[in-house]
Simulated scan of single mutants.
Amino acid sequence: MLEDLVVWYLFLGGAGAGLLFVSTVLEMLSPQAIDSSRACQGARCAPKPAYRRFFGPSYGMGIAAVALGMLCLLLDLGRSDRALAIFLQPTLSFISVGAYALAALVALAAVLAAIWLFGADFFHRLFVRVLRVFVAIASLVVMAYTGLFLASMPSVPLWATPWIPPLFVASALSSGIALMVCAVVLTGSGGEFKATLQRIQKIDAAVIVCEILLLGLFVLAAFLGSETARMSAERLLAGDLAALFWGIVVVLGLVVPLACEALNRRMGARAAVFSGILVLAGGFFLRWCIAQAGMAPDIVSSVMAALGIQ
């Protein structure tokens, strides 16, 4: 079966990539974040202090989440030679491709983090603009990869569906927004960017609606699929996983945050953080429940082979 460390790897990688994607998009839409009043030499300008307090924690949190996801992968492999083999002897397996995508994302985002965390003003503006695009692309690759990783296993009927990659992308975006809100509010910059956070939460509400629709299509596809896929879906809806699925994933992870964000004008900082925590819990248990529901004793060996674990 998929170990909990693998689920954490999928969740943290997706959530961190979602946060980095949202951060780069917001940065692209915020040209006023660069202090044009300060002297610029060679088109190198310093970021405004207020925006540093917003983007700094966002990039820092995103990189930390992706790095923790990578650590979970390495710990799950168990042996240092396996970990080194991923990078020194790359294959076309999703584990190998995902590890490289995560490493590339961390390396690229670290430059943007240096700007906003430490006020680095020696980067050329054109270089930073191009770098933002590459970080956004790498983030999208990682978000999509976490769903493609499971969908690539035809031996698991519940996972072998085109709906799981977009479902995980939507979940990663929502989790990324939740991480951003928590990072900005908990570091004390929520008041300065209250209007921005409210707009972000409205976008998150739309993403959650999409996630609910995709989750419904995912379950429907399972019921219309093979007998094994239908039995796996029944575990989610009425079986041993139903309490976690309905209670944490659907109600606490989707419905309650959606209701909170629909009323975001009345939400204070604590309520915003509480809603974000619920979204993150729902994102993790979404992956955990889907991973558990898809597994059965007769397909464990094929999944282990796909993971490269003998």
Rank of each mutant, 00 (worst) to 15 (best):
L2R: 12
L10A: 13
L10K: 01
L10S: 11
F11S: 12
F11G: 11
G13M: 06
G16Q: 14
L20C: 11
L29P: 05
D35Q: 00
D35P: 00
R38T: 00
R38K: 13
C45L: 06
A46W: 04
P49C: 04
R53I: 08
F54N: 02
F55E: 14
A67E: 15
L71A: 15
L77C: 07
D81A: 10
D81T: 13
L84M: 08
I86R: 03
L88T: 00
T91Q: 02
S93C: 01
S93H: 08
V97H: 08
A99I: 07
V106R: 06
L108V: 11
A109E: 02
V111G: 07
I115Y: 09
F118L: 14
F122M: 11
H124Y: 03
R125F: 00
R125E: 01
V128R: 05
R129V: 06
V130T: 13
A136V: 06
A136P: 01
S139M: 01
A144L: 07
Y145H: 15
L148A: 05
L150P: 07
A151M: 13
L158D: 09
W159N: 09
W159P: 12
P162L: 06
I164E: 02
P165R: 03
P165G: 01
V169I: 02
A172E: 14
A172Q: 13
I177N: 13
L179Y: 09
G188E: 10
G188C: 05
G188A: 09
S189V: 12
K194D: 01
A195Q: 15
T196G: 07
I203K: 11
D204F: 01
A205T: 03
V207S: 11
E211Q: 14
G216Q: 14
S226K: 02
M231L: 03
S232H: 05
E234C: 05
A238H: 12
G239A: 07
L241D: 06
V249Q: 10
V250S: 12
V250E: 11
L252V: 07
L252D: 03
L254F: 13
V256P: 12
P257C: 04
N264V: 08
G268F: 04
A269N: 03
V273E: 04
V279I: 06
A281W: 06
F285K: 10
W288D: 07
Q292C: 12
V300Y: 12
A306R: 07
A306K: 08
L307W: 02
I309D: 08
